[in-house]
Amino acid sequence: MSRSNRKVVPECAHALNQMKYEIAAELGLMTGGSAGGADTEFASELGGTASGGGHVNWSQIATRDAGTIGGSITKRLVQHAEQVLKGL
C-alpha cells in the first residue's frame, strides 16, 4: 500500500499548519524565535516569545510528541466535523 501526504483539499494546508503550531504551543514545544510565519493564538502564553511567535525544530521533536500533535489535529478535526454535521 502506498502512502502519500497529498492533501485532499490543498486549500486547507495553511489552516492545518497553523493548527499544528497551536497544538505544539499548547504542549509546550515552542522554543522561541519565529514560527515560520504561523500565527499561533497561544504561543506567547505557552512558551513563545513576547513578539508573539515561537519556533518548533521539527527534526528535534520526539516521535511520541509528533504523534501527539497529529492525534490532537485528528481529534479536533473530528470534533469540528461532528459539530457541523449535528447542525444539519
Rank of each mutant, 00 (worst) to 15 (best):
A38I: 07
T31M: 09
L27S: 08
N17W: 02
K20D: 08
L27I: 02
A35M: 07
D39Q: 12
Q18N: 10
G36V: 09
G48M: 06
S34P: 06
G32K: 08
A43Y: 05
A38T: 08
G37S: 10
A25D: 08
A38S: 13
A38P: 06
T40R: 03
G37K: 12
A24F: 03
L29P: 05
E45C: 15
Y21H: 06
A38R: 10
A35N: 14
A24W: 00
A35S: 15
F42C: 12
G28F: 07
L27A: 06
L27T: 04
G47M: 06
G36Y: 11
T31K: 11
I23Q: 07
G37H: 12
I23N: 03
A43E: 04
A24R: 00
L27V: 04
L27K: 05
A25H: 03
S34E: 11
A24G: 05
E22K: 01
G37R: 09
D39E: 12
E45T: 13
E45Q: 14
G32P: 08
M19A: 01
K20F: 04
N17R: 06
G33A: 10
L16G: 10
A25N: 05
S34I: 07
L16I: 12
T40I: 09
D39N: 14
E41G: 05
T49K: 15
G32E: 02
L16Y: 11
G33C: 11
Q18E: 09
L27M: 10
L16F: 13
A38C: 13
G28I: 03
G48K: 09
E22V: 01
T49C: 15
F42S: 13
A43T: 04
L27D: 00
E22T: 02
D39P: 04
S44I: 11
I23K: 04
E26I: 01
M19N: 00
E22F: 01
G33R: 08
E41Q: 11
G33V: 07
G33E: 06
K20M: 08
S34F: 11
K20E: 09
K20G: 09
S34L: 11
A25F: 03
N17E: 05
E45R: 15
E22N: 02
Y21K: 00
G37I: 12
G33F: 04
L27C: 04
E26P: 02
A35G: 15
K20H: 08
I23P: 03
L16N: 11
M19K: 03
A25V: 00
I23M: 04
F42W: 14
G37T: 13
A43C: 14
A35P: 04
M30G: 00
M19W: 00
G32A: 08
L27R: 05
L29N: 02
A25S: 10
L46K: 15
L29M: 07
L29T: 01
E26N: 09
G47L: 06
T31C: 09
G37V: 13
A43S: 15
N17C: 01
S44D: 14
